[in-house]
Simulated scan of single mutants.
Amino acid sequence: MKDIKLLTTYEQLKALSDPFRSQLILRLMEKPQTGQQLSEVFDLSRARIHYHLKELEKNELVEIVKREEKNGIVQKFYQSVAGGFVADRTLLPNSGDLSETVRQMMVNMLERSKMRVLSTPEEALQEETGSQDPTDWKYLSSAFEIKATEEDFKAWQKKYYELMDELADIQKKNPTENAKLYYFHSLGIQVDESMFDRKRSEEVES
């Protein structure tokens, strides 16, 4: 699976802007699954699942990565072709559809993150230190609003990805038995109104 795939056709853009297909893509970014497995996850018929899978496959957004025979039936395992997607500049005239595609992917990613939080083990949420410094906690849960130029944001974002690679490399180079699996979800977008400032002003008025 590639890290990023370039979307070069309007059909690919439309396929990803479909709410349900973007949910399928996110599932198949995590691990390969069959149509039967996905039909059980989404409680939909196999025929309906296969219809959407074929549309995604036709647009080169998912692919069959392995086949297994079970009870005389060949099962096809589908996987997303990439861990992320970005639109080619030639698609910019369709900016409305492009924005909706990105928005839909973000919303579905938030839903997946919500499910991961709800299923996280209890011990991961038990903070025994009593520290008021969030950097001492064994979990990360924060929201920020920061004013910055687009150039400064992009420069910081580059450092952020480098930092994530640095953390991942620690166990790759020197694996230990006490290492735990951590799930990260980051979201950084421009907004028009500060919710934090509004909340503070509402508290003062009350």
Rank of each mutant, 00 (worst) to 15 (best):
E11S: 05
Q33T: 04
E60I: 10
Q132T: 03
M109T: 07
D165E: 12
E69T: 12
V65Y: 04
L7E: 00
Q79T: 05
T34N: 14
I146L: 11
P175Y: 08
E162H: 10
T149L: 11
E111Y: 03
K154D: 14
D165C: 03
R112Q: 13
P121K: 01
I170S: 10
S39M: 06
D133F: 02
S201Q: 10
Q132Y: 08
S95I: 12
Y139W: 08
Y160L: 05
D88Y: 07
T120V: 13
F184D: 10
S17N: 13
S80Q: 02
L110Q: 14
A179N: 09
L181R: 10
T120H: 15
I73F: 13
D152R: 12
I25K: 00
H185N: 11
S119G: 02
Y78G: 01
K66T: 15
R116L: 08
E68V: 12
A179V: 04
Q132N: 12
E60L: 12
Q23C: 05
Y182M: 11
V41M: 10
R112L: 10
A124L: 02
K199D: 03
D192V: 00
M109G: 13
L6K: 09
R67F: 14
R200N: 01
M109I: 03
T135D: 08
D18T: 06
T90W: 14
Q23E: 11
V74A: 13
M29N: 12
T90I: 14
S95H: 15
L187V: 03
V191R: 07
E203N: 06
A87I: 02
A179K: 04
K66W: 14
M29L: 04
S95G: 14
N71D: 15
F184K: 05
K114I: 05
Y161T: 08
F153I: 04
P19T: 02
L7H: 00
Y10N: 00
G83W: 03
Q37K: 13
F184G: 08
D43Q: 12
D165K: 05
I146G: 03
P175S: 11
D165W: 03
P121H: 04
Q132C: 09
V86I: 15
L7F: 01
S45G: 14
Q190Y: 07
S39F: 06
T34S: 14
L163I: 00
D97G: 14
M109D: 09
K154Q: 14
S186I: 00
H185L: 05
L140R: 13
M115K: 12
L56Q: 01
A124F: 00
W156I: 09
K138T: 06
I146F: 05
V62K: 01
N178T: 09
E60Q: 15
K76F: 12
D43H: 09
D18R: 09
K173H: 07
P134E: 00
K14P: 13
K70H: 14
A168L: 06
S39K: 08
L28A: 03
L24F: 10
V81K: 01
T176A: 07
A124S: 03
A124M: 00
D152C: 05
L26M: 05
E128F: 11
Y139N: 11
L187S: 13
D136Q: 08
R103L: 13
G84V: 09
K172R: 03
L24V: 02
F153P: 05
E128S: 08
D169F: 07
